[in-house]
């Protein structure tokens, strides 16, 4: 492995990245102690430790950060935020990174982003989650064949009442009256408009 010298003064460094991701000044005060990493249940599976991500955000290494797996693995347990000795809202920063990655269409870890997408689409339509439909949408968007492998598990969960079927079917007749979209649709559209503005 070779080490490329990182030119801290290079024009390619996105100097506004930190500002966009973490508008308050807290993240600038990160002391790189690693409390976040050691508190994180998913850190073992990450390509960069959370602490390294903050450093990269501080230095404006935008593309490296957005293409990393780290923030997609956050389960929003808030352990890092609770323990951070500088009181930095780290979980919120992770959320900002996820939103930016989706907005920029970075598809490298689409398992995660598509999962969020499937969830939001179902909520947008019915105002609640139809678990079966959500899983179908998720698998169709990632790897439809994987559904076959999961069928026995899905059936077992159904028979034990761990997932429900039919929320969507029950809602369907009413949706016809609304032109196929749910009542939350307007809300989602408005938010999308707001987010699209610079």
């Amino acid at each position: 492995m070779t080490q490329e010298i990182l030119d801290l003064t290079a024009p390619t460094r996105d100097r506004s990245f930190l500002e966009v991701i973490a508008p308050d000044e807290k993240l600038r005060a990160c002391i790189q102690c690693g409390t976040c990493t050691a508190s994180c249940a998913s850190a073992y599976a990450m390509d960069y430790t959370p602490r390294q991500i903050w450093r990269m955000v501080q230095l404006g290494l935008r593309d490296e950060v957005l293409n990393s797996k780290t923030f997609w693995l956050c389960s929003t347990c808030y352990a890092c935020t609770v323990r951070c000795p500088r009181g930095i809202p780290l979980t919120e920063t992770i959320g900002a990174l996820k939103r930016m990655a989706i907005a920029r269409g970075i598809r490298r870890y689409k398992e995660s982003s598509n999962f969020y997408r499937a969830f939001m689409d179902v909520v947008r339509r019915y105002g609640r989650v139809d678990e079966l439909e959500m899983m179908v949408r998720y698998f169709l968007s990632t790897n439809p064949l994987a559904m076959i492998g999961y069928t026995p598990l899905g059936l077992a969960m159904l028979t034990h009442g761990k997932v429900t079927v039919g929320e969507g079917l029950r809602m369907a007749p009413r949706l016809v009256g609304m032109g196929g979209t749910g009542r939350l649709d307007a809300l989602f559209r408005r938010v999308a408009e707001l987010e699209a503005k610079p």
Binding site: C33, G34, T35, A38
Partner: peptide, 27 residues
């Protein structure tokens, strides 16, 4: 790296967790 937590194991041993920030790895 900041000593982040101490867990008392059932056998009485103590497990300290941290990130070795020089290595960039949880330890």
């Amino acid at each position: 790296g900041r000593g982040t937590e101490v867990r008392v194991r059932e056998d009485g041993k103590l497990v300290v967790r941290a990130e070795d920030t020089n290595l960039g790895r949880p330890v």
